[in-house]
Amino acid sequence: MVAKAGTRLESALRAKGDLKLVAYMMAGHPTAKRSIDVGKRLAASGIAALEIGIPHSDPLADGPVIQRAGKVALEHGMTVSGALDVAKAVAAEGVPVVLMTYINPVLSYDPRKFSAEAAQAGVAGVIVPDLPIEEAEPVTGWLRSAALDTVFMVAPTTPPDRISTICSHSSGFVYCVTVTGITGARKELPEGIPALLKEVKSRTSLPVAAGFGISRQEHLKALKGNADAAVVGSAIVDEIERGGDGVSLVRELLKACR
């Protein structure tokens, strides 16, 4: 049955022996044209899904690398509408695209219009890091009606009962934040990660992706078997900032996923 197969994101991220890799890039970083180009190359690099950030002036959950990328994108004129264009061009390559942005640009654009246009652009799901489940319904209602997944986050500080509630609100996958903190590559991941992932996995049938701080092969080796997927963000954005496209980093990291 179609319903049992789950959404596009769900099937793309479910681990089948290997660990899936999700890459992150910022729309409009450093320019709209260049970010489409980078997105297309990342789409073909072997990743399971691509997160595309919509820049915001005050990104509360982001570290310096993604903050800088957002600032550059905004300075170069990136908008919500422009980011939807970037997403459309990249999604056409066939990779599932997940938009990641903060709540205010979505509210300002109008959640109904945002949901409809994201669906039209071929986007698979949306993550809003400053939208906890309690505040989500006015937005998720529209996302659901546009057949888009809403991915919620679980943090190391989330109590067990709340993990279950978050998982039941989430669709596509559950995003497990691996560090108590903001985005940005770390040398080492905290020790309690396998236990946290196990806890989350025991409370949902959705795939679970680990994110924040992940940038190295040894991180991925530690996550393999515990998570379905790993999200690599700042390390890729850092490469894009230096003029690269992150593809060689992705290929390098994929070796540790198999």
Binding site: L60, P132, E135, I166
Partner: peptide
């Protein structure tokens, strides 16, 4: 009003 913050802060 409300609580538009990352999940990490919700229990605090």
């Amino acid at each position: 009003g409300g609580q538009y913050v990352p999940e990490t802060l919700m229990s605090a």
